[in-house]
């Protein structure tokens, strides 16, 4: 079994520089919050779960319920 990935050293470093670690975390939190508020997007189209938009191959088979034929 290979050794761990130096995790103990990372923890020791963070424990020695607690304030710096927290500051980095705060900056990351603010940056992430900014990205989320600026770029949040969510598709509710069930068809998007199944076919890749980029291929375009599926556009003829995407789910769209129809309510036509009402005239008959």
């Amino acid at each position: 079994m290979a050794r761990g990935a130096g995790m103990t050293r990372i923890v020791a470093l963070c424990l020695r520089h607690t304030r710096m670690t927290l500051l980095v975390a705060l900056v990351l939190a603010l940056g992430a919050a900014w990205v989320v508020t600026q770029r949040f997007a969510m598709s509710t189209d069930t068809a998007d779960l199944i076919w890749r938009r980029s291929t375009g191959a599926s556009t003829s088979a995407r789910w769209k319920p129809r309510f036509r034929n009402c005239a008959m």
């Binding site: 939190a29 992430a32 919050a33 990205v35 770029r39 949040f40 997007a41 598709s43 189209d45």
Partner: peptide, 23 residues
């Protein structure tokens, strides 16, 4: 909470949008 926020931001940057499953 912080991890969730960072992952959400990374997800939006890399994938562009969430869908009903990826959320």
């Amino acid at each position: 909470v912080l991890g969730l926020l960072i992952t959400m931001a990374l997800g939006l940057l890399v994938v562009g949008r969430f869908n009903l499953i990826s959320v």
